[in-house]
C-alpha cells in the first residue's frame, strides 16, 4: 500500500517559486494498477518521483509504504527501502556500456549475492519478459520495446512490491505499447505487483488501470475507479481525455468539417447516446423505436472496454413526432443513458 499525505512540491526558478504539486493526498492499495493521467506539465512525473523520494516533497508532505513513513527514514534506510520500489522510465535509462544481462544484474551487484545466483535471477527475469536470447546484446542493438522489457526485468531484479512506470510507453509505437501493457498487466496478475502508471495516453489508462487519478496543474481534480471516472467525467479535463479516446466525440468535429453529411429533415434530431452504467444489456434502441414509433438512423456506434466494462454509445438521427421524441429521450435518461442533442 502506498499512501501520500498532503504532498506539495515547489521548485525555485528565475521567475520565482513554481508550484508543481499542491496538496495531493491519495492511497494506492496493494496489487492495484493505479493510473495517474494528465497533460504534460501537470506534475505527473514529479508526483511519481515523490513516491520513491527522488523528489523530496515540501515540508508537511508524507509518504508511506505500508506502515513505514518513507519520508522520515534516514538516507541509508531510504536507499534500502528503494529496493522495494522498482521504476521504469520513458527513455528506458539502460546503462549503454553494459550488456543486457549486466543491466539486469546491476541492482544486485555489491549486495553480497553470489554471482551465479545473480545471473540465474537475471536469466529468469529475461525469460519472464520474453528476451531469453538477448543476454549478450548491448542496449544500442535493441528496439524500443525490447529496451523497455530489459528495463522491466532490471526493475524486478530486487523483487520489488511496487513498480513505478513513468510514461513507460510514451516513446513506443501503438503495437509495442500494447505488448508492454500486456506484459505489465500479466506481472500485476502473476506477481501481485502494485503498479503506479504515469501517462498522458488515455489508451494506457483505459486498457490497464483499475483506478485512475486525473492531475491538472499540480492538483488532483478527479479520482476513482477507471470506469466511473471515464463513464461520467465530472471535470472538463477528464472529458477531454475521454473524448480523445472515444470516437463518439468526433461527431462535433465531423459536423464542422462536413455539414452536408448531417443534413437533417424537418423534425429530425442528431443525438448522441452514451452509457453511464456498467452492463448495458437492454436493447434500448429497438425498444424506443417500437415503443415511441420513431425512426433511429444509426450513423455510428462505438464501444470501448474501460476497466473491463464497456463504455461507449451511439450517434444517430432520431425522427418522428416531436412529442414522442421528447418522451423517448426522457425514457433513455431514466435508463441511465446520457442523451445529448447536437
Amino acid at each position: 500500500m502506498i499512501r501520500l499525505e498532503h504532498i506539495s512540491k515547489t521548485f525555485s526558478s528565475v521567475q520565482g517559486p513554481v508550484k508543481a504539486l499542491s496538496d495531493i493526498s491519495l492511497q494506492i492499495e496493494k496489487g492495484e494498477i493505479f493510473g495517474i493521467i494528465g497533460f504534460s506539465g501537470a506534475g505527473k512525473s514529479t508526483l511519481v518521483r515523490c513516491i520513491n523520494l527522488l523528489e523530496r516533497p515540501d515540508r508537511g508532505g508524507k509518504v508511506f509504504i505500508d506502515s513505514t513513513e518513507l519520508s522520515a527514514l534516514p538516507y541509508s534506510e531510504l536507499r534500502a527501502a528503494r529496493l522495494n520500489i522498482g521504476m521504469i522510465f520513458q527513455h528506458f535509462n539502460l546503462m549503454p556500456s553494459r550488456t543486457v544481462l549486466d543491466n539486469v544484474t546491476f541492482p544486485l551487484n555489491y549486495r553480497r549475492i553470489p554471482a551465479t545466483q545473480q545471473v540465474r535471477k537475471a536469466r529468469h527475469l529475461l525469460e519472464l519478459v520474453g528476451l531469453e536470447n538477448f543476454e549478450q546484446r548491448y542496449p544500442s542493438e535493441l528496439s524500443g520495446g525490447q529496451k523497455q522489457r530489459v528495463a522491466i526485468a532490471r526493475a524486478l531484479a530486487s523483487d520489488p512490491k511496487i513498480l513505478l512506470c513513468d510514461e513507460a510507453t510514451s516513446a513506443l509505437d501503438p503495437q509495442t505499447t500494447r505488448e508492454i501493457l500486456e506484459l505489465l498487466a500479466s506481472l500485476n496478475a502473476s506477481l501481485g505487483l502494485t503498479l503506479v502508471v504515469i501517462t498522458h495516453e488515455m489508451a494506457v489508462v483505459k486498457d490497464l488501470c483499475h483506478k485512475v487519478a486525473v492531475l491538472e496543474q499540480g492538483r488532483l481534480v478527479e479520482s476513482g475507479e477507471t470506469f466511473e471516472v471515464f463513464s461520467n467525467p465530472q471535470q472538463e479535463i477528464t472529458r477531454r481525455f475521454v473524448s480523445a479516446a472515444s470516437n463518439l466525440a468526433k461527431v462535433e468535429q465531423l459536423k464542422k468539417l462536413r455539414p452536408d453529411f448531417f443534413a437533417l429533415k424537418a423534425g429530425e434530431l442528431l443525438v448522441r447516446l452514451s452509457y453511464l452504467k456498467r452492463s448495458v444489456s437492454e436493447p434500448l434502441i429497438s425498444l424506443i423505436t417500437s415503443r415511441f414509433s420513431l425512426q433511429f438512423n444509426i450513423l455510428y456506434a462505438d464501444v470501448e472496454l474501460v476497466g473491463g466494462a464497456p463504455i461507449g454509445g451511439t450517434v444517430g438521427v432520431l425522427g418522428g413526432q416531436s412529442g414522442s421524441i421528447a418522451e423517448a429521450l426522457h425514457f433513455l435518461e431514466q435508463k441511465n443513458v446520457k442523451v445529448e442533442v447536437l
Binding site: N52, L54, R79, A80, A81, R82, L83, I85, G86, M87, F89, H91, N93, M95, F106, P107, R154, S158, L164
Partner: peptide, 10 residues
C-alpha cells in the same frame, strides 16, 4: 536519466 535510474535502485 541513468543517474536517476541508479538512484531509484538504491
Amino acid at each position: 536519466g541513468l543517474i536517476e535510474a541508479a538512484q531509484s535502485m538504491g
